[in-house]
Structures are given as structure tokens and as C-alpha cells.
């Protein structure tokens, strides 16, 4: 890819979500795991979405793909713009055509999406067939061009070519995740969504996989949405980060400035809970309590029951995202009208 092409690809977001709301019907009532979330994913950037369990980070990804783990979930509002088209309201067929081609996916457990009875090569070929991939040389045999594409992909993720003739159980966890990345890249997607891609891996393997993802993402100028609970991973690989709490974005910003000066009390609490390899002394202050129950979320700012700076206003009104030097932060402390 030429620098000019790279430039044009990074100009505007590949995918933007606006005011996304997702609902799940449950025995205990209506739950909103994603409640008014807006994000944007520019080409050539790695955007981290970080949060604890129940923050809605994975649900946001499911909502983009409209692929929910339960049939009780649905997108209840907002837009998901892939280029100019809104993905909300697309038919299942249209979404199937988009998933795996324009949006690639990398999962936490790579073995769960690989079919155990098909060879690796066959599985990626099937994906290319299903999306009628036409990126190969214009003339010639389709089957041959698919096979070439498979070995090209496997080589690019650092796997030997003969992996294509092997079955998933013959590969290690790290190798499976490399196959997962190859599959996500197969149809030259605009966006890759990676949901905790290294959580199940050992640290030395995690380091390899993160490096690989960084390299491929840069080479292909693809947008990467990296969902993780690990602030270390965010700091190591991301350009921009959204911090989610209980279904909402509490803070966003450029990674360097956000880590240098976290604005939201929750972000600060998260960072103080991070243990550094070089530091000594005592563990930073721990936030009391735990992530709230989404069936009965706290009123106003959802962090207020655990927040050391909570004011009366915090329990009454949900704060908007205020502009800060480092990005944006949803806390009433930033409001000039606050005494």
C-alpha cells in the first residue's frame, strides 16, 4: 500500500457507532448492557475498548456484528455506520455477507470457532468461497487462487504453509489464534474486531500475538477494535481507548494522554488497581464494591455509589462526556457549573 493510499484510508472512520443501545430481555426484566455508546474506528488505528466484566464492551462488539450470544438480545437504538451504510436494520443475509469479509473477527477462544473436522486450509477456503473473494489474479483457476491466498495468509501470520493441511486439534493455542487472525484478514476487511484475543494465552504467546496483530494492522492500514480487560495490553498496543463502565463510556482519549492524566474517577481507580512490574510498596487504593447489576443500575452516574468524589448531583443526573485536554470524560467534576 502506497503512503498516499494509506493517507486516504485513515482520513475518516471506517466504522462509527452512534448512540448505540442494546437490550436483553431476561427473567429479571429488561437489561441494557450497552446504553447510548458512540465510538469511531479510523483506518490504520488500534482502538482499545477497556472495561471490567459487565461493562458492555463485548456486547458493543456483538451489536456491531448483530451476532448475539442469546436470542433475547437486540439493538434497540442508534446507528452503526460502516462507511456510509447503517448496519442496523440490515437483513441477516446482508449481515452474513459483511461479517467475515468487510468486518473480520478474532475471538478469545480460537478453538471454538474452528471446525474440528475440517483442515485449516479448507476452512479458510470456505470463507473465501462464501464471500466470493476476488482479490486474486484476475485470470486463472478460482480454486488455485484460493489455495494461493490461504498459503499467503498463513505465511503472513507466521505459520508454516503445511498448517493448511492440518486439523485444529493438531495446533497449539497460539497457533490456533494465528489461524484466527489469518481468517479475520482473509477477505481484506476494513475493520477487525478482536474480543480478548490473548486472554486465554500464556504471556510469552500473548506477546507474540500482540506483536503480530500490530504488524499486520500497520501493514494493511486496517482499523482494529481491541476489546480487553487488561490496561497493560491497551498501553502496549492501542492508539486510542474507550473506557466503559456499566454499559456506558466514562472516558475516552488518546492512549498516551489518557494514561498520563486519567480524568474520570473510575479510570483513575482502574489505574491505581494496576500492578506494575517495577513498582514497590502497597497496592494502590482499591475501589470498594463491585460492578453494578445491570438489571437495576444506579441512577445518574453509574459509578457514583463507588466513587470517592460523589456529589448529590451524581445520583440524580447522568453526566455527559465533557471535553478534556486528553479526550472526553463523563464526570460532573469537569462541569464548570459544579461548585
Amino acid at each position: 500500500m502506497s503512503p498516499a493510499e494509506l493517507q486516504s484510508k485513515t482520513a475518516h472512520p471506517v466504522l462509527a457507532i452512534e448512540n448505540l443501545v442494546t437490550e436483553i430481555r431476561s427473567v429479571r426484566g429488561l437489561i441494557r448492557p450497552v446504553d447510548g455508546v458512540s465510538m469511531s474506528f479510523p483506518a490504520g488505528k488500534i482502538v482499545g475498548v477497556v472495561g471490567e466484566s459487565g461493562s458492555g464492551k463485548s456486547m458493543t462488539a456483538f451489536s456491531i456484528m448483530q451476532l448475539f450470544p442469546t436470542s433475547a438480545a437486540r439493538v434497540a437504538g442508534g446507528r452503526v455506520l460502516l462507511g456510509e451504510t447503517d448496519l442496523i436494520g440490515r437483513s441477516p443475509e446482508q449481515m452474513r455477507a459483511i461479517r467475515g469479509s468487510r468486518i473480520g473477527m478474532i475471538f478469545q477462544d480460537p478453538t471454538s470457532f474452528l471446525n474440528p473436522v475440517l483442515t485449516i486450509g479448507r476452512q479458510i477456503e470456505q470463507q473465501l468461497e462464501a464471500h466470493r473473494w476476488t482479490g486474486g489474479p484476475p485470470a486463472g483457476d478460482r480454486g488455485q487462487s484460493y489455495a494461493n491466498r490461504v498459503s499467503e495468509l498463513l505465511t503472513s501470520v507466521g505459520l508454516p504453509r503445511d498448517v493448511s493441511t492440518r486439523y485444529p486439534h493438531q495446533l497449539s493455542g497460539g497457533q490456533c489464534q494465528r489461524v484466527g487472525i489469518a481468517s479475520a484478514l482473509a477477505c481484506d476487511p476494513d475493520l477487525i474486531i478482536a474480543d480478548e484475543p490473548t486472554t486465554a494465552l500464556d504471556v510469552t504467546i500473548q506477546a507474540q500475538i500482540l506483536r503480530l496483530m500490530m504488524r499486520l494492522q500497520r501493514e494493511r492500514a486496517v482499523a482494529l477494535m481491541l476489546i480487553t480487560h487488561d490496561l497493560g495490553v491497551v498501553a502496549e498496543v492501542c492508539d486510542y481507548v474507550y473506557v466503559m463502565y456499566a454499559g456506558r463510556i466514562v472516558e475516552e482519549g488518546d492512549v498516551r494522554s489518557l494514561f498520563a492524566a486519567p480524568q474520570h474517577p473510575y479510570t483513575r481507580a482502574l489505574m491505581s488497581g494496576v500492578l506494575s512490574l517495577t513498582g514497590t510498596g502497597n497496592i494502590g487504593f482499591a475501589v470498594p464494591g463491585s460492578v453494578p447489576d445491570l438489571a437495576a443500575p444506579p441512577s445518574g452516574c453509574r459509578f457514583h455509589p463507588r466513587c470517592p468524589h460523589a456529589m448529590p448531583r451524581c445520583s440524580q443526573e447522568a453526566p455527559p462526556l465533557f471535553d478534556r485536554p486528553s479526550g472526553r470524560s463523563a464526570c460532573w467534576l469537569h462541569d464548570e457549573a459544579t461548585p
Binding site: 504471556v203 506477546a207 506483536r211 497493560g232 498501553a235 498516551r256 494514561f259
Partner: peptide, 12 residues
């Protein structure tokens, strides 16, 4: 290989 939660010292 252990990620460091500090972009200034990111080592990977």
C-alpha cells in the same frame, strides 16, 4: 512479555 500499563514505557 508482561504488558506494562504505561504507554511511555511500552516494551512489547
Amino acid at each position: 512479555a508482561t504488558p506494562v500499563a504505561d504507554p511511555e514505557r511500552a516494551q512489547l
